[in-house]
Nucleic acid binder design. Structure first.
Lengths: 339, 339
DNA sequence: GCTGGCACTCCCGGCCGGAGAGTGCCAACG
DNA sequence: CGTTGGCACTCTCCGGCCGGGAGTGCCAGC
């Protein structure tokens, strides 16, 4: 599609623009060691690249700026091997060697790690709870009419749901109902538990026994009638902010990041389209027109478990971000597979 | 300290500056309905207010801008009754009428509510876990060498801690150990549990029994050797960003907000000094020199439980923020007292 | 003691002009 | 025929300049 010279020139423009955030002129490109033609030739090539949509000129007699199409070609065709620096690799390694304890804490710390590595905002989406198996179920009475269902999952995550009872129930009844639930649920996935009917748990149709009523109420809460929300951890928003120059842009991006469900969908959508990088409007969100998103799934015990990502300006260091995301996803998956 | 005229003039300057973010000149003050003297008189008063440190002049022949001292006087002496508008009151009312379910979710939603009311960033610090009593303790084995302690507290919060065992222990042993813990801990506060010694739980000194070893390991984790972290919920960072005009400032503030422990200490410190508003450097943090912090504790069952706060620019709408924080703290405490 | 008037200061916005960066085109060259 | 040096042109950016406007401090008078 692009001959080699144009590709080289495009690469030079993109890399320089990423560094300087200034429109790049032909003489700068000519100074690049990869380019051995005169600036006049480069001008011709750049004019052609512009008409093909890879570059954009803010105004006559200004240098060129990459378009989304230009970044896209750069990422797809021109991406270097993308090695992480030695100190960064070491940072990741020692982080996961030290990492232990609660899974939420680890995921939150991972988002900090990733934002430290890239200097952009980092998003870590936890493994969905539906696929984990239940290790333990317990019902605890909080008040006469409110109980709490606590479910421990095999990956160490916890789900909790308050259950509002329509009758008063004492502690014994509540824990008896909990035992019934536990007997049926332990070893199953949450998705399976969600499809249980009262009959599965030995509730006779029409039963009015208090225990049965509690079981039914608990089951209703666990049913899929509400979305089991993935946990989201976002770090490095301050780094992200520093990468932009308009406070309005920053505010809009923060508004997106505050809506965590939206962020989950955003990452899932990008990944679903088979992309690992979404540039500008490719993110599918108008407010992120000046942003790029680098994503990668992580694999736990052989199965895709969650997603991590980096959000920065379209002029981000794609190679660094891509390799940081890849390495962290890899290590995180491995670490979680060990339990 | 300030005679009535000067106080009135100071109030007019502060309110106008809060509205417009522009230095205020004597003729603008003269236009205020509260002021019935000529602009020349106001000029004299303003010069005097400046020499006393309440106002600042960016340069000769510019209007005046309030100093921290000026805001402080405004907040302390000139604060109106600070009624919340009818629609806002309604919003708070209906929020807490609807609110139900997990406490964390409620606190997170409260931070959104507060940021919506004020259009600044809102911080909600959850009740400390130490003072809540234990409702239930359970030990669940995750792997042969890792167990999870799940503690349900009377306010519906959950603590969980992974316990790394030095010996393998099967599920029966783990849950037996859990039962021992539960028997001793239920009904006590977490602080009390933290002071337990193995002897409290019937562990014979020097015992090598596997159950005893698990109990000891679990106890070690629950001991106060690590700080029980209060949960923090922050909302409205996008609104906060929109209130500033330098992206660098926003980035620095976000960097503070990312350090949640710091934020907890910040609020605690302000409250500890008996303040409900900290202006600029009064926050004790250089990075927040352009910010003000409005805080209030909330009371659950007659005891101070947690803190909420609002972070905005020094030129914030103090009366609105103060009343919003007060109303939300009040309602939140009431709501949590009901269980 | 307040006020109107006045001279003064300083910012801000618009305008101009030159420097600089960059382009497109063209003619010449290998 | 592709490449290159040259050249005329364009447009932004920056500094200087200037006038208007907002605001001040001071003073004299009521």
């Amino acid at each position: 599609m692009l001959d080699e010279r144009k590709a080289t020139i495009l690469r030079a423009v993109v890399t320089e623009y990423i560094e300087t955030a200034q429109p790049v002129g032909s003489s700068h490109v000519a100074a690049s060691p990869d380019v051995n033609v005169s600036s006049a030739t480069i001008r011709n090539a750049m004019a052609s690249l512009e008409s093909e949509g890879y570059l954009h000129q803010p105004h006559t007699s200004a240098g060129r700026v990459p378009t989304e199409k230009g970044y896209r070609f750069f990422v797809d065709q021109l991406g270097g091997p993308g090695r992480l620096g030695a100190s960064e690799t070491q940072q990741v390694r020692s982080f996961f060697a030290r990492a232990h304890g609660e899974i939420e804490q680890m995921l939150a710390d991972t988002s900090r790690l990733l934002s430290n590595l890239t200097r952009y905002a980092a998003v870590v989406v936890g493994p969905p709870h539906e696929v984990a198996t239940v290790r333990s179920v317990q019902l605890v009475g909080l008040t006469q009419r409110v109980a709490l269902a606590v479910i421990v999952l095999s990956n160490g995550a916890i789900e909790k749901h308050t259950i509002e009872l329509d009758h008063e129930a004492d502690e014994l009844v509540v824990s008896a109902a909990g035992a019934r639930l536990a007997a049926a649920a332990v070893g199953r996935t949450l998705a399976e538990v969600g499809s249980f009917t009262p009959q599965h748990l030995g509730v006779a149709p029409g039963s009015e026994a208090t225990v049965d009523r509690v079981v039914i109420a608990a089951l209703a809460v666990l049913r899929g009638d509400h979305r089991h929300e993935e946990q989201v951890f976002i770090g490095g928003t301050s780094d992200m902010a520093a990468a932009f120059d308009a406070v309005g842009t920053v505010s809009e991006i923060l508004r997106i990041l505050e809506q965590q469900l939206l962020v989950v969908d955003l990452l899932a959508d990008v990944l679903g389209r088979g992309l690992s990088v979404a540039i500008g409007r490719e993110t599918g969100n108008e407010a992120l027109a000046d942003c790029s998103l680098v994503v990668a799934p992580y694999v736990v015990d052989g199965e895709a478990a969650g997603t991590i990502g980096v959000l920065g300006p379209t002029r981000m260091h794609y190679d660094q971000a891509l390799s940081a995301v890849a390495v962290v996803a890899n290590r995180l998956g491995r670490r979680l597979s060990e339990g």
